[in-house]
Amino acid sequence: MSSHDHAATTPGHPSYVRIYLVLLALLGVSLLGPTLEIPLVTLITAFGIAVVKATMVAAYFMHLNIEERYVWYILLLMLGFMLVMFAGIAPDVMLPAGQNWLHLPIEPPAPPAHP
């Protein structure tokens, strides 16, 4: 199956400009949200919207929404590896103490000397 056959199987291109405008609007929200200085709102508007934006880019610009399922398997497998890494390392990094070890307090660096 050639690339053009792939295109032929699609019902037609979506309005990319409309998707782009939605992405720009989401960028605006992700900038405005943190100005409220409410941690939960910052979390949702900055990182929640980042997930939505990346999903839209993958689905519509990379055409994952019409891609063969095999590609999904490849990408999900890699995301699974990421989660395994995170779950394996996070206890050592994020817990204050473990078996026979302690996190030593780290002093924040001094302000830089302005030239």
């Binding site: 199956m1 995170f86 996070a90």
Partner: peptide
């Protein structure tokens, strides 16, 4: 899937591990 496109997806799969590892460790 056309071979060339499949190859690109595999490249991106390896990139997910690279950037994912970096971003994951940063978040931690």
């Amino acid at each position: 899937i056309p071979t060339a496109r499949l190859a690109v997806w595999w490249v991106l799969a390896s990139e997910i591990v690279i950037f994912g590892g970096l971003i994951g460790s940063y978040v931690m």
